[in-house]
Design a protein around this nucleic acid. Sequence first.
DNA 1: ACACCCTGTAACAGTTTTGTAATCCCTTTG
DNA 2: CAAAGGGATTACAAAACTGTTACAGGGTGT
Lengths: 226, 226
Amino acid sequence: MNKILVVDDEEDLCEILKFNLESDGYEVDTALCAEDALKMNLNQYDLLMLDVMMGEISGYKMAQMVKKNPELKNTPIIFLTAKDTENDKIHGFNIGADDYISKPYSIREVLVRVKALLRRTKKDEGLKNEIISYKSLSIDMNKKKTMIDNVEIALTKKEFEILKLLLGNIGQVFSREEILSRIWTDEVYVLDRTIDVNITRLRKKIGDYGKNIITRLGYGYCFENI
Amino acid sequence: MNKILVVDDEEDLCEILKFNLESDGYEVDTALCAEDALKMNLNQYDLLMLDVMMGEISGYKMAQMVKKNPELKNTPIIFLTAKDTENDKIHGFNIGADDYISKPYSIREVLVRVKALLRRTKKDEGLKNEIISYKSLSIDMNKKKTMIDNVEIALTKKEFEILKLLLGNIGQVFSREEILSRIWTDEVYVLDRTIDVNITRLRKKIGDYGKNIITRLGYGYCFENI
DNA sequence: ACACCCTGTAACAGTTTTGTAATCCCTTTG
DNA sequence: CAAAGGGATTACAAAACTGTTACAGGGTGT
């Protein structure tokens, strides 16, 4: 099931899009301004549809912010806009828009474009040829492998995802709640304590680097450069 | 270097596109009608740009013919057209267009779209017209044959496609979902577990090399150098 | 119509991963 | 210093995933 976030300050429009996209089988959330949207866990979405003209933060601005986050930079974006000049289109593409739909648009066209875009970006998942590393510890997103001194360390999926999150944001503290919302799917409810257990397991497996995963009492965990 | 084929009956337009695309670093061939284009070796191109309105065979018609050829069905297509109604856009997308540019268009917009599209579809590069091999196992894309120690192994189509995907990206992990979206057509809905069964069959047929197809629990499958 | 191949589905068994609960340990705070 | 609030560990059980086999439907060629 693909999840889509629609951000538009016209509530009616949000509802129309939500209704139509949902009847086409997508799961849709909406936000009325970029500020609200940025507070959400954007990581859960497979596609963002942003209105260009809205509130304090424009769709372009929001897209720029989103693209800076390594966790999100591959999330496709479709801009919705009344502006239809060439310059705007160029601008949208340059900051990473994957498509561009001008109002007034037909719902059918939107549905077709959304479908086409999701089909394309699904395939691209394997293109994120990224390797994050810290000293002799490195993780390869493509191969889903973890290496220490060029020796593979077998991590389970949850362990890998946690390490990826922490290592991709060195120094940043993640609360248990945040880790849960990023790595566990929405439908699953698990205890906070589950994180502890997974952290324990992860620390044990990565040997000395386990010491880099710091517990911030009362806050959560982070990977620190020590 | 990306190769592009432009098919348009307006010679001037062909030349303008060719000139601009070439100065942007692409290699460009042109054809003035679909009939000519279809006689060429289309396999060499990374992108087809088709005018909708031309000669006997329209761009749509040509696209349909191209998409039927399994060797070419992943080649992205951009339609060029003066028609700008909603129905046309829908039509284009349904038969596999990856983008759609209406005349009169600006060159800049074309360049941006071409770039964006090629970036998205680049993954398949290097897989065309080739023989991929790993030790004494090799597959020939043209002949659709699989050889082990110079002896042919009979694989079914699905088995062959899966092996081609995995072998062409050694080390990379492919989720079931990704394998489905790459090898099965969009309209067909099959279970994830179908992949498992096909993997089992494939492993059995390729003997010892079956051990190279590794299951990454929770992620999918990959072909590893062991 | 028959036989054969390809392919998807269902069912069951075997593994691995993951969550929970219980217990122990450490740190902070009054 | 002692109590209280987290956090770390461990073992166990539940859940999730995968491998394999058998079977059925669709298609093709004879």
